[in-house]
Simulated assay, not measured.
Amino acid sequence: MSKKIKNIILAIILGITGIIIIVNIVYNKPHISVSEASPDITLVSQKLLNDFENNEFESNSKYLDKIIEVNGTISEINVSENKGIITLSDEGSMGGVICHLSPEEHTKIASLKKGQNIKIKGICTGYLMDVILVKCIIIN
């Protein structure tokens, strides 16, 4: 076998090994417990929404995959298949902050009302006309 073929085979083996290691690290990444973690950022829901509306690229680098604690007014409450979703927004606002509650928080939804001020903590996953927070817990 020529030296060139040996180098190609070695490069392929190293590449496959590298891919396997990266996939293993990402797959076995520990899950974040939002309830136990302290927030990376605390702000009002309208400020979070305005930041994304004004500069999505900068906001992604600032908020994406961070634990965010937001304070806002409930504009919508949805419950389906034991999953709760709370939307925080101000009157007249086109968008909002959509908070997908953790399964443990589902029981707390019954005591909430539209127009109520609430504090929620969750992980920001991005912006699609609304800011999305997942694994949310109700603080008060």
Rank of each mutant, 00 (worst) to 15 (best):
V70I: 14
E58D: 13
V23A: 13
F57W: 09
Y27W: 13
I12F: 10
A37C: 12
T42K: 14
I20N: 08
D40E: 14
P30K: 05
S45R: 01
I20Y: 12
H31I: 11
K3A: 10
G18P: 08
I5Y: 07
N7C: 05
V34E: 02
Q46I: 04
S38P: 03
L64R: 06
K3W: 06
I5S: 05
I5M: 11
P30V: 02
Y27S: 15
K3D: 11
L49S: 00
H31V: 10
I74P: 01
D51L: 04
E58W: 02
Y63A: 01
K66D: 12
Y27I: 05
L43P: 07
S33K: 13
T17M: 08
I19D: 10
T73K: 06
I22L: 08
K47D: 14
K29Q: 01
K29Y: 03
I9A: 14
L49A: 01
K47P: 00
K4F: 05
T42R: 10
N60D: 03
G15L: 07
E58L: 10
V23I: 12
K62N: 08
I13L: 15
I19L: 15
K66L: 04
I21P: 07
G72E: 07
A37R: 15
H31M: 00
E36W: 02
I25F: 15
I74C: 08
K62I: 09
G15N: 10
V26Q: 06
K29D: 02
N60L: 14
I9N: 11
N54Q: 14
N55Y: 03
Q46F: 09
N50R: 04
G15Q: 00
I67C: 01
V26D: 09
I13A: 15
A11W: 05
S38T: 10
L10G: 09
L48W: 01
S33T: 06
N55F: 00
N71K: 14
A37N: 15
G72V: 06
F52R: 00
D65R: 11
K62D: 06
V44H: 02
I67Q: 03
I21T: 04
G15K: 04
D40K: 04
P30L: 02
G18W: 12
A11H: 07
K62Q: 11
K3I: 06
I8N: 09
N24G: 09
K4E: 03
L49R: 00
I22T: 15
V70H: 02
I5Q: 09
S33Y: 12
S35G: 13
D40N: 12
F52M: 04
N50L: 08
D51I: 03
K3T: 12
K6C: 07
E56I: 05
N71V: 01
N71P: 01
G18D: 07
S59H: 05
